[in-house]
Design a protein around this nucleic acid. Structure first.
Lengths: 342, 342
DNA sequence: GCCAATCATGGTAGCGCTACCATTTGTCTG
DNA sequence: CAGACAAATGGTAGCGCTACCATGATTGGC
């Protein structure tokens, strides 16, 4: 006439089993596991022994329901294969690896609609924190984030009006700095080549344009863009287009390093001398930029640090001490290399 | 004296609120949301109206607890920035984007210990399925996977002894094919250059060795490896080392495309003619291989398809019709290009 | 037209855990 | 040494949902 073993749970030991074996109350087991400091050493030892013997593992779903909070960080990025976001995500992972928090990544595919859908799903599990890429959320997404009831960090960019917290840098300044460098090196007919013109790319383009206009050199025919996702081969093609449109081109600021590498390869193939005939600047400064021949000037961004910093801010907010500085600008660095050294 | 509004839940409407408003039982609401076919159209409409009006969103934690199953796919990969895994993960995401399943990625950092820890965490939320990279799980990890109580798919490789299901290809055959191609092209002093020698890299090396021994050309001094993570710059350095060790080198099979690109750049920098003096073969066939100048021969692997296929198999198993073919070999293709065309 | 089978719906009883509050014990103050 | 206070522990009552079983309504076979 023994109590029937839980029919659904698959027979896994529960906190009650541990409590019985250790001769304590269930709540004390719960505490011993989550806040060891609040339980006497004696009981802690007893409980640990019972846990080990039974092979008890807490049921995270039950915990989440009872505490109305899942130990999950929701992360929303527009792409998984784009090295830039992969680095941010790596930073997030590394910063959370010793914490109890799990990570759920959502891939928005650069779509506001998809972002809203994912926020709805993420929200309905009451995450511990949300990290989202970009600052151009749709009004709906913004509302969901404001009502999420957890810390929110917008990453990659900075702007004047954070939902909660922000870590990033100014893409406009990055684009301007890159272009000004080409101008200072003496290039004049400087093109902009960009794929997948997301809001960040748009702002880099705006920075390029500002620099060119300030120099009195802007010409819309210098700009070559496409909504197609970025790749090295696309860089090659776009460069060809740009050159066909404007044969006197003597420099290019590339939206990112993949494009820049494609441009470089096409130059070599077409026997165009870099940096003598054409100067090239990339964006993000992937490892290969410094290895390529010639090496490529690029704007180094602190992607990994954006991830670690975002987590640090979120953890602080969860712990109750929300950082006083809600907007963190990590800046960028221009890495001057052979591709613009003439 | 009204019933106090749930003190923990944050005032979100619950299924009971919807049921009351729609004038039906809670369980009927639950069914209308999960198995609409089992509820009459009339009630379905009424319920939908109540859901919309209240803005009801199911609490996923409560659902997971009650049904002893979270709608989560756990995915374990050794690296997030390695393009190869990023592509697999992208395939997984795309295949699950229209399903209710969320995805949790664990980053094992190529560590068996970390893999066990993550499996423990993942397992304690009763995931719907688990996808893990590789076939060399520790005994502990294997046990956890066998007892996970959900479909398990091992990806990237195939082997004789699946835990449950497998999708991948033979890295040994890939390494052998690449090396045989170099041999057929007339190269003789063919080196192997590899970073981060994980089990898959080891098997590619074994394939290289098998081909070289079959030709009577194997020499341990031809092999240059390091446990350091792979990168383009590392490829350059390792190639320098290899050349210092064996100046008569006339070909290299690179563990992956990053290394191959680094080798190519170093050749250009050192004015070594590719393919005349040195032949280069990469592995994975990233987009840039076909764009580089000269273009680089590589072994194309079907990474995205590995992800989509793994999900398809897992979903079938969840639905109750486990695929009859438990091991799927997606093969690979040698892409012959300029870097070995002499 | 009767009984079995099916369908649509609902009530009850948890899932395994933690928030909240109560209780007990030990410790300190004046 | 009384009274106040903190520390350690436990009991109770859910968290919001779904599995299980029961019920009544409908259908169908012969």
């Amino acid at each position: 006439m023994s109590k029937p073993r839980s029919r659904r749970g698959g027979g896994r030991p529960t906190i009650a089993d541990v409590a019985r074996k250790a001769g304590v109350g269930a709540i004390t087991v719960s505490r011993a596991l989550r806040e060891p400091g609040r339980v006497s050493q004696d009981l802690r030892r007893q409980i640990q022994a019972a846990v080990d013997e039974l092979g008890y593992v807490p049921d995270l779903n039950a915990r989440a329901l009872a505490s109305a909070r899942a130990e999950v960080f929701g992360v929303l990025v527009p792409s998984l294969t784009n090295n830039v976001f992969a680095e941010v995500v790596r930073g997030i992972y590394d910063s959370l690896s010793d914490s109890p928090f799990r990570i759920q990544i959502g891939n928005t595919h650069y779509s506001g609609l998809e972002e809203e859908r994912l926020l709805q799903v993420f929200g309905s599990q009451r995450p511990a924190a949300l990290i989202v890429a970009g600052i151009d959320q749709t009004p709906g997404a913004r509302r969901l984030l404001e009502n999420a009831g957890c810390p929110v960090v917008q990453v990659m960019e900075t702007g004047p009006d954070p939902i909660d917290m922000m870590v990033g840098f100014s893409h406009l300044d990055g684009g301007r700095t890159a272009t000004e460098h080409l101008l200072q090196a003496g290039y004049r007919k400087i093109g902009f080549i960009g794929a997948r013109m997301d809001p960040r790319s748009q702002r880099r383009l705006a920075g390029y344009r500002a620099a060119m206009e300030a120099a009195g050199l802007f010409d819309p025919r210098l700009v070559t863009t496409t909504p197609v996702p970025s790749s090295v081969s696309l860089g090659r093609e776009l460069f060809r287009d740009a050159l066909a449109k404007m044969p006197t081109l003597d420099g290019v600021f590339c939206n990112n390093d993949d494009i820049a590498l494609g441009v470089l390869f096409e130059c070599r193939r077409a026997s165009i001398d870099v940096p003598k005939q054409i100067g090239i600047v990339g964006f993000n400064d992937l490892d290969m930029m410094q290895v390529s021949f010639p090496s490529i000037t690029s704007v180094r961004t602190h992607r990994y640090e954006i991830g670690t910093r975002a987590v640090a801010m979120a953890l602080a907010a969860i712990a109750g001490n929300r950082p006083q500085q809600r907007i963190v600008d990590l800046g960028f660095e221009l890495m001057r290399r052979e591709s613009t050294a003439r």
